[in-house]
C-alpha cells in the first residue's frame, strides 16, 4: 500500500477532530470561564475543581466513565436512538464529546486567567458609560482577553491531537472513523511498522515544538503590547 494513503487518513481525522473540538471548547469554555471569573463563592471552586479533574484523572478512568455514558445503556445511547443509532461510543461524535471533556481545563483556565487579568476597573468604567453587561462583555472583556483565547485555542487543539487513553477507551480503532494519530502510532508499533510510526511520531514532535514556540512568542508580544 502507498505510504501516503496509509498515513493520511489518521492525520486528516485527527485534524478534523481537533478543529471541531477546539471550536466547541471555545464556545462552551468561554461562558464557563467568564462566569467563574465574575464570582467568588464556594460554588465557583467546586465548578473549577470539576473542570480541572481531567488534569489529574487517569485517561483510562475518564474513558471508562465516558464509555458507560455514551454506550447503549447510557444517555449517549438514548441520544443516538433519536437518529436510529445504538450508541455514541466508537463514533466520531463520541470522540468529539470525549475530547471536549478531556481538554476542557486546557481551554477554560487560560480564558479564565485572561478575564481575571483584566481586573474590575475596565468593566466598571464601561458600566459608568452606560454599557449593558452584554455590551461590556463583547466590547471590553473579549478584546482585552484576546491573548488568553489564543493560548486556549492552541492548548485545546494540541491537547486533543495528543490524547490517547480516552480515545482508545471510547473510540477504539476504526480506520477513517476513530483511528486518530496517536492510536495509529500505537498500532504501527504493535505491528512492527517502525517506518510509519517514526514518520508520525516525528511529525508530532515537530508539531508540539511549533505550538510551544508560537505560544511563547505570542505571549511575549502580548506582554510587550500591554506593558
Amino acid at each position: 500500500m502507498n505510504l501516503i494513503d496509509d498515513i493520511w487518513p489518521p492525520v486528516r481525522l485527527t485534524i478534523e477532530l481537533a478543529s471541531l473540538s477546539t471550536l466547541i471548547l471555545l464556545i462552551v469554555g468561554t461562558p464557563i470561564a467568564w462566569r467563574l471569573s465574575r464570582s467568588d463563592t464556594w460554588l465557583k471552586h467546586v465548578v473549577m475543581a470539576v473542570v480541572a479533574m481531567p488534569l489529574v484523572l487517569p485517561p483510562t478512568v475518564l474513558g471508562f466513565y465516558l464509555l458507560v455514558l455514551l454506550g447503549p445503556q447510557g444517555p449517549g445511547g438514548a441520544l443516538a436512538s433519536l437518529w436510529g443509532g445504538r450508541t455514541l461510543a466508537f463514533s466520531f461524535t463520541g470522540l468529539v464529546i470525549g475530547s471536549v471533556i478531556y481538554s476542557l481545563p486546557f481551554v477554560v483556565q487560560p480564558i479564565h486567567n485572561a478575564f481575571r487579568a483584566i481586573g474590575e476597573r475596565p468593566l466598571e468604567a464601561a458600566a459608568t458609560l452606560r454599557a449593558s453587561p452584554a455590551r461590556t462583555f463583547w466590547t471590553v472583556a473579549m478584546p482585552l482577553a484576546r491573548p488568553g483565547f489564543l493560548t486556549a485555542a492552541m492548548l485545546g487543539f494540541a491537547h486533543t491531537v495528543g490524547e490517547f487513553g480516552v480515545v482508545l477507551m471510547i473510540g477504539g480503532n476504526i480506520p477513517g472513523q476513530t483511528k486518530v494519530l496517536s492510536v495509529a502510532i500505537f498500532d504501527y508499533v504493535e505491528t512492527s511498522r517502525w517506518r510509519e510510526a517514526n514518520i508520525l511520531a516525528g511529525g508530532m514532535a515537530v508539531f508540539a515544538f511549533a505550538v510551544i514556540l508560537t505560544m511563547t512568542l505570542l505571549e511575549r508580544r502580548a506582554a510587550r503590547h500591554s506593558a
Binding site: 476597573r121 475596565p122 466598571e124 468604567a125 464601561a126 458600566a127 459608568t128 458609560l129 452606560r130 454599557a131 449593558s132 453587561p133 461590556t136 471590553v140 478584546p143 482585552l144 500591554s226
Partner: peptide, 20 residues
Amino acid sequence: LPTWRRPIGYVFQEASLFPH
C-alpha cells in the same frame, strides 16, 4: 438601578481608559 442605567459620568483616580 445598576450602574449602567444611572445617568452618571465617573472619573476614577486612575484614568482607566480602554487600552484596546
